[in-house]
Design a protein around this nucleic acid. Structure first.
Lengths: 153, 153
DNA sequence: TATTGTTATACTCTATAACTATA
DNA sequence: TATAGTTATAGAGTATAACAATA
């Protein structure tokens, strides 16, 4: 009933595969950290992700794109954030189809605290300063560019 | 928890902050890759995560612990995997409370293919071989140890 | 008494389709 | 016609509580 070593059989894989496995593992850790942080603010993960997008006022459509979900889902998610008075819907005077999502003062405080909690994940504790700089440089090379993937479907 | 050196402490903390942000960003990418891979096998993410745990026969309880969810949820998730004939529930002769989850031949094929798809994430394309080895070493240091977090609640 | 797994319940997330009001 | 947002619907994930069978 006990699983084998995590990285035990990885020696036969090439570096790219092994890195992918480690990233997946770290992703699981980070996901758990995020869910825990959201729960401390009594938010579900999608609600927390939406809140983090509201540094400036944005449209429902924008949030749906960022959360990679159908626009109809955002209606319910924002309904709940609005019921908790973290967010308000305001009409856009330039295009009356658009509803601009604006943080309340309480929503702003929650967003800042949530972001701090997410970013303070201690996943990289145990690295020396020079190792951190090296990691920073390497992560910077693989982050921030669009996924070379078919995102349709 | 306190960083050792005094001189480079501030820069090191900034690095930690920035690394946390990059890891979060890469996590989003990896999560999307995983969801896409699961969808290609017509699995939901929890179903795919459960399937990946079944390299050897394990109990419902084990899967619940790995998925970090209540045991009652696993009933439904395994119900659907069983309905698709990817998994069977078998009684454990040593402890008749336990149901051992065993992959069918089709389930085994799906698990292997899913794992290959997950591990072939091209997130690290663009790194040189020496950069990959460096990244591999650094990720290895931060992965694979339990989270220094309070997982309760 | 404690543990394994199930059922019942309620809430949330998700996609699809159909709808409105704007553009 | 196309876009922003909503509603209705259905399937799936999730936690809690209560329960039966077993240890």
């Amino acid at each position: 009933m006990k699983p084998p070593g995590v990285a035990g059989a990885a020696a036969s894989l090439d570096d790219a595969h092994e890195i992918a496995g480690l990233l997946f593992q770290i992703t699981e850790q980070t996901r758990h950290v995020f869910e825990s942080a959201a729960r401390r603010f009594e938010l579900t993960p999608p609600q927390a992700r939406a809140l983090l997008e509201l540094q400036q006022p944005v449209s429902m459509r924008f949030v749906a794109d960022r959360l990679r979900c159908d626009a109809s889902n955002v209606t319910g998610i924002v309904d709940r954030l609005e019921a908790r008075e973290l967010v308000t819907r305001e009409s856009d005077p330039l295009d009356r189809r658009i509803k601009s999502l604006v943080l309340t003062p309480e929503g702003h405080r929650a967003r800042v605290a949530l972001e701090a909690a997410v970013r303070s994940s201690p996943v990289m504790a145990g690295l020396s300063p020079s190792e951190r700089r090296a990691l920073l440089r390497l992560l910077g090379k693989i982050a921030g560019r669009g996924l070379p993937f078919d995102n349709s479907v």
